[in-house]
């Protein structure tokens, strides 16, 4: 079966005073029905840009210049206006990071949900209200009827994120792109939201891209993981294989910087330096300047290569499997 979403060589650039800078530099990624793929990386690595490139919601200075985006086998890269709108919400939906900001502060929950509903379906007021109440009940919101009449500021952060999830799932989309949806929440609420999204995705067979920088979340929810660095996917594969024995030195560094994985009392390893900005990307491997394993070869750009365990890695000196 064809994957729900298939990205091939996706390239997105930002127009700046310094010229066009590549925010995404050849992204290949496929997500199948019912599969949860985590997109991991530091801020600025291009995780969110990937999501917005798919849904055509890039800021006005950015545009997709090359590559293909196939949704259910249909090319959608470069779709604009009404054609793109018809896909949004119905076939591909998004959930954002901060539930305080995702819902419009001056519109009732019911108004916002109804607008999302009527964006793709026509129905009477009574039927619509029933549908919205069911959608809210499904994401675990008590007294859905009363909630519809409330404003976002009258709900808690977790509740707001549930509302956003209910809106995103309203039309049973094939793909949901969740952009750090739990980062702004309390840990306990985080767990609830994670479990909720995971359950709904599995029940409905929704493909899910979970954008995050939190590896603990990844381990808990994802089937596969794609690690991004400076606009490229540097390692991609089944979540257990990648987290247990990373092949790319950057993935290794990321995992080592999580305090929980590290023996107590020892100095926490850090990745030296910082991610280069788009304007200062080196020609070769973008991670080379910070990499402990770099060599002369890294002045060239590494191509993706299989690394065992169903993995792909972009590195001239991958860590041997099991050496972790």
């Amino acid at each position: 079966m064809a994957p729900v979403l298939e990205l091939r060589g996706l390239r997105t650039v930002f127009a700046t005073a310094a010229g066009e800078l590549p925010a995404l530099d050849g992204i290949d990624l496929a997500v199948s029905r019912g599969e949860i793929v985590a997109l991991v990386g530091e801020s600025g690595s291009g995780k969110s840009v990937t999501g917005f490139s798919v849904t055509g919601l890039l800021p006005s200075v950015a545009r997709v210049v090359a590559g293909s985006v196939r949704l259910n086998g249909t090319e959608i890269a470069g779709l604009r206006g009404e054609a793109m709108r018809r896909l949004r919400g119905r076939h591909v939906a998004m959930i954002f990071q901060d539930p305080m900001m995702t819902l419009n502060p001056v519109l009732r929950i019911g108004t916002q949900m109804r607008d999302a509903l009527f964006a793709h379906e026509r129905m009477g007021g009574r039927a619509a209200a029933d549908r919205l109440e069911r959608a809210l009940a499904e994401v675990g919101i008590a007294e859905p009827r009363a909630r519809l009449r409330q404003y976002p500021h009258e709900l808690s952060g977790g509740m707001r994120q549930r509302v956003a999830i209910a809106i995103a799932l309203l039309h049973g989309p094939d793909l949901v792109i969740a952009d750090e949806p739990t980062t702004a929440l309390d840990v306990t609420i985080q767990g609830q939201i994670l479990a909720l999204v995971q359950r709904l995705a599995r029940e409905k067979g929704t493909a899910l891209i979970w954008i995050t920088h939190d590896l603990a979340v990844v381990a808990g929810i994802a089937d596969r993981i794609a690690v991004m660095y400076a606009g490229r996917i540097v390692e991609e594969g089944p979540v257990d294989a990648v987290l247990d024995s990373p092949a790319h030195p950057y993935t290794r560094g990321l995992i080592d910087s999580v305090p929980a994985t590290h023996p107590k009392g020892q100095r926490l390893p850090q990745i030296p330096g910082r991610m280069p900005t788009l304007a200062e990307l080196p020609d070769g491997c973008a991670f080379a300047p910070r990499c402990p394993r770099r060599s002369g070869a890294c002045a060239d750009r590494p191509d993706p290569a299989p690394a065992g365990g169903g993995r792909m890695v972009r590195c001239f000196h991958p860590l041997a499997e099991g050496r972790a």
Partner: peptide, 10 residues
């Protein structure tokens, strides 16, 4: 974000 979200919802 709420404008982006509204657009993302179609």
């Amino acid at each position: 974000d709420y404008i982006r979200f509204a657009r993302a919802s179609g």
